[in-house]
Amino acid sequence: MKYWRQPLDRDEIQVIRGQVEVIKDRCKGCGFCIAYCSRGLLVMSRKFNRKGYHYPEAAQPELCVNCHFCEVICPEFAIFSSQADAAGQQPPVGE
């Protein structure tokens, strides 16, 4: 998201950082999480899991904001996010 100016409180706002975890062998490759990831950080892996499906992986894991949408949309209970240990990051605006 790009703004025409820097928000005045940009230094104060901290965005939560999340971490995506994929349980590869449960995945059936429907692609819901990839299509609906709010930050677009997931891509379909070129590798196969034990059942022969491609599974998602985080191409840019640092973008995750722990919104849990991949977790609720996954029909296989194969992906979830948790809060990362690292301190929050600043919102990526005006860049």
């Binding site: 062998d25 449960r26 059936k28 490759g29 429907c30 692609g31 819901f32 059942k51 499906y53 977790e71 609720v72 949309i73 996954c74 029909p75 296989e76 209970f77």
Partner: peptide, 16 residues
Amino acid sequence: IPHIWCSGCGIGIVFG
């Protein structure tokens, strides 16, 4: 798990 529902079936979402 993994369950019998097809890839992309909506039942898994409702179950979650």
